[in-house]
Amino acid sequence: MIYILPIILFLIALFGIVVKRNLIKIIISISIMEYAIFLFFALIGYRVEGVPPIEVEGVRYVKFVDPLPQALVLTAIVIGLATTALLVAIAVRIYQKYGTFDIEKMRKLKG
């Protein structure tokens, strides 16, 4: 039942995306959503009394932690950084055009 913790984190971030109107706040919420998903993957792969999936010379372990979710998350973290930077760049551009981070004012200023 410990899976409930990342889901609560995810839902808080979803609430932030729905409610907040500031672009930077929305970007932060998206980042927190990513973190929740990473935590969920790491929890799925965990094994009780497991060891990290790295073989040591001379010792033969059998109870490794599942390495597959770790490999998926490892690439996804770096991609998350790049996409966050892309979102930030677009937000900065929008600020330079409209002078605000408020998405409602942006809609009003459009016409």
Binding site: I27, L43, Y46, P52, I54, Q70, V78, L81
Partner: peptide
């Protein structure tokens, strides 16, 4: 704590860099 040292290394540095970017 979940026995994933690779992820911990990447996560620490990525967190610092994303704070710098934002």
């Amino acid at each position: 704590f979940l026995e994933a040292p690779d992820l911990a290394i990447v996560q620490i540095v990525v967190e610092i860099l994303s704070l710098v970017i934002i």
